[in-house]
Simulated scan of single mutants.
Amino acid sequence: MSSREVYPNAPLVLVAAEIRHPDAGTLSDREKQQLKRALADELPVARPLNRPAGMVATIGPGVAAPQFQPTTAISSPRFLSRDLITSATFHADAVVIETTEYPGFEAFLALTQRVLSARLSVGSLDGVERLGLRYIDEIRVPSVGDTSSWRDWIGPTLLGPNHLADQLELTNDAWQGISTYSGKLDAGDFEQMSLVLRYGTGEGYALAPDGDLRRKTPPPGPFFLIDIDSYWGPATQAVPELDLNAVTSALEALHGPVRTLFESSITDRLRDEVLRRDGK
């Protein structure tokens, strides 16, 4: 069992796991029905994810500007919980699990294992091309009226040049930042990892309240974004075998720095006065 503290008023608005694999083609109606039966206890609502043709922005390592690529119209099988807060989507080249109410990493990982096991039961996959965990936080506190107020709640490493506002006798209206990290990932064939941190002030919502997944919807207002993408992607042309145990170990290793990074980015005042409250 984990000893990590679970905050009753956590600022997480979306957690996602992605297992990307070589294109396996469109699932047949029979295979979709097999998946539906396998996931019926937890994700009984079938609601395909339809994406129209258009352009999609992709962001790679580093701080380069997004690249836009044309996409074709697709429809991917997707299964949701009855409360519409958790989903599993089966693209031709990826399995994606998402939730807007995070039950803790161990429970989320167990769900990811069950979803991936269900996918493998209807047909083999040729390997793994990317593994990723995404955590999006909207940090909100009642007393924040302007950007300078975040100094009491967010650690100085994420406040950037905000402290210069007083010297300039100006107001720092907004800021955004991105940091990238890389290092060893001790998980069999998955030897290297990358982590991208995006952060800054925002207004309204980072995750739209009218999306496909239901989310807790506080009144719109100022928030501080902490968006962490921890992932493995092959440094060579090698494509490791998609082994369920190996993928589980790699996801556990990818999760390690996520919690450390989040905790180092906030203050004790935020923990005591906001995150440890009951959320009411």
Results as ranks from 00 to 15, higher is better:
L111K: 13
L261P: 01
V239Y: 07
G160E: 13
L39W: 02
D146Y: 04
T71V: 15
L80E: 11
V96I: 15
S149Q: 14
E241G: 01
G25Q: 01
L164Q: 15
D189M: 04
D189R: 07
V115S: 08
D126Y: 03
D186C: 01
Q176Y: 06
P52V: 08
R259D: 15
R37L: 13
P70Y: 04
G221F: 10
V56L: 11
R119F: 00
S3T: 10
S117A: 15
N245C: 09
Y231K: 06
P240R: 10
V128R: 05
N50A: 03
V128H: 05
T99R: 13
P222I: 08
S76A: 14
I228P: 04
M55G: 05
R20N: 06
T171P: 03
Q167E: 15
T260P: 01
T217P: 02
L109V: 09
L120D: 02
G233K: 14
S265T: 08
S28M: 06
L80Y: 03
S117R: 15
I228D: 05
P234K: 13
V15R: 03
A53L: 03
H91I: 06
Q33N: 11
D278C: 07
R78C: 15
E273N: 12
S76N: 10
A238G: 00
P240H: 10
P220N: 09
Q237Y: 06
E241R: 11
L207R: 10
V122A: 11
M55D: 09
P156F: 02
S81N: 09
V95G: 00
L133I: 15
A235Q: 15
T58A: 07
T112R: 06
H21P: 06
R214G: 00
S124W: 02
S87V: 03
I74D: 01
L225G: 04
L39F: 02
R271C: 08
R4V: 05
Y199F: 15
A174I: 08
L254A: 04
W153C: 01
T100Q: 11
D278R: 14
I228K: 04
D166H: 14
I59M: 09
S75C: 10
T157V: 14
H255M: 04
G123V: 09
I226E: 06
L195G: 06
Q192F: 11
I85T: 15
S143F: 01
W150L: 06
R271P: 08
R82G: 06
E98L: 02
P219T: 04
V128I: 14
A64N: 12
G221M: 12
P22H: 04
V247Y: 02
T180V: 14
N9C: 05
Q33C: 03
T100C: 12
D278H: 14
V6A: 06
S179G: 11
L168G: 00
W232Y: 14
L109D: 13
V45E: 07
P11L: 10
I59R: 05
A250W: 09
L164P: 13
G132Y: 05
V96R: 04
T171C: 06
S143E: 14
T248Y: 03
D29F: 00
N50K: 05
Q67Y: 00
R4S: 10
P77Y: 03
A253F: 08
V122K: 09
Q113A: 00
R78T: 14
P48S: 01
L195R: 06
R82D: 13
G279F: 07
T236H: 13
W232L: 09
A40C: 07
W150F: 10
A73F: 08
L168S: 02
Y199T: 04
I154Y: 05
A16T: 10
V144Y: 04
L80G: 02
